[in-house]
């Protein structure tokens, strides 16, 4: 009620705020994306098709998808484990752990990349071991996955921790008293409650992983067709005056982003319905 009267008294303020939000989102978020797509439209379908079916663009796309799937899968597992540990057990340093999960949000991706180089690069302390066992991490796919995991780590954990926290542990305790095993408990008691939050986290994580640029750029080595992900490829094409190709490849990422957003909205809708029951 308070809100209602507030907004009635301040009609102009309400309108202003709504307008500002719309203008801001349009100018800062939508226009640049439309710009990309409009550019591609200008170049024509033939150019677009040639660009996106280019051998190296396809390899970059394939690598990006591979990296994304690996990173998202691992982050989902890590995220679940961390969220579970934080919300279901009491231990010293719990608050610290929650804060630490957010490190990737606070730290610049470049630093993440450099850390991996310092650790797994030729001058890093693990290199003699890696060299002896013929393992390549940086300047190879594992480095790309690691860098992506680092950057996208908080997305899954951040989504499910609040859900688990707000629900408390009563139902799990009851299930345990009734003799449920761990996996049964997880599958039948915990999971149904957090599945939407989890899916939501996975979707955000997917979007971010697909577009990751900074940390990946440091550990990539830019070997074309080997360690060049789609975002890196787009930047190189752009700098090399291949504007049409660059924008066409960028359109793939934009399309993926839109697809992911649409999917997210459907999910939100479905989950609201689901919660009503």
């Amino acid at each position: 009620m308070a809100e209602l009267s507030f907004s009635r008294e301040n009609k102009w303020l309400r309108r202003l705020l709504i307008m500002v939000s719309f203008v801001f989102i349009t100018v800062m978020l939508i226009l640049p994306l439309v710009q990309v797509l409009a550019q591609v439209w200008d170049f024509g379908f033939k150019n677009f098709w040639e660009a996106v079916t280019d051998e190296y663009t396809l390899k970059a796309l394939k690598l990006s998808i591979l990296t994304m799937i690996s990173a998202v899968t691992l982050n989902t597992l890590f995220g679940l484990a961390a969220a579970w540990a934080i919300t279901r057990f009491r231990f010293w340093g719990k608050g610290l752990l929650i804060t630490l999960i957010d490190i990737p949000f606070a730290v610049s991706p470049v630093i993440a990349g450099l850390v991996f180089i310092m650790t797994f690069g030729r001058l890093g302390w693990t290199y003699p071991f890696l060299e002896a066992h013929d393992i390549k991490i940086v300047f190879a796919t594992p480095g790309l996955v690691l860098a992506t995991i680092f950057v996208t780590f908080p997305f899954v954990a951040r989504e499910i921790i609040p859900v688990l926290l707000s629900r408390g542990t009563d139902e799990e305790e009851a299930a345990m008293l009734l003799g449920s095993g761990f996996f049964q408990l997880f599958r039948r008691v915990t999971f149904p409650h957090l599945k939407w939050a989890l899916l939501y986290g996975i979707i955000l994580c997917t979007a971010r992983a697909l577009g990751e640029f900074g940390a990946v750029s440091v550990v990539s080595g830019h070997l074309r067709g080997k360690t060049n992900t789609l975002p890196l490829h787009i930047e190189i094409l752009f700098r090399e005056y291949h504007t049409a190709q660059s924008f066409s490849a960028a359109a793939i990422l934009v399309a993926a982003a839109i697809l992911i957003l649409v999917f997210r909205n459907i999910l939100e809708h479905v989950s609201e319905k689901d919660r009503e029951f």
Binding site: G121, F139, L223, K226, I236
Partner: peptide, 20 residues
């Protein structure tokens, strides 16, 4: 032949760090 392109000094640096 796998190509890699970038700023010259930056590229040298990646080779030093293990880009084979």
């Amino acid at each position: 032949v796998v190509q890699s392109h970038g700023g010259s000094s930056k590229q040298a640096r990646t080779v030093i760090e293990g880009n084979e």
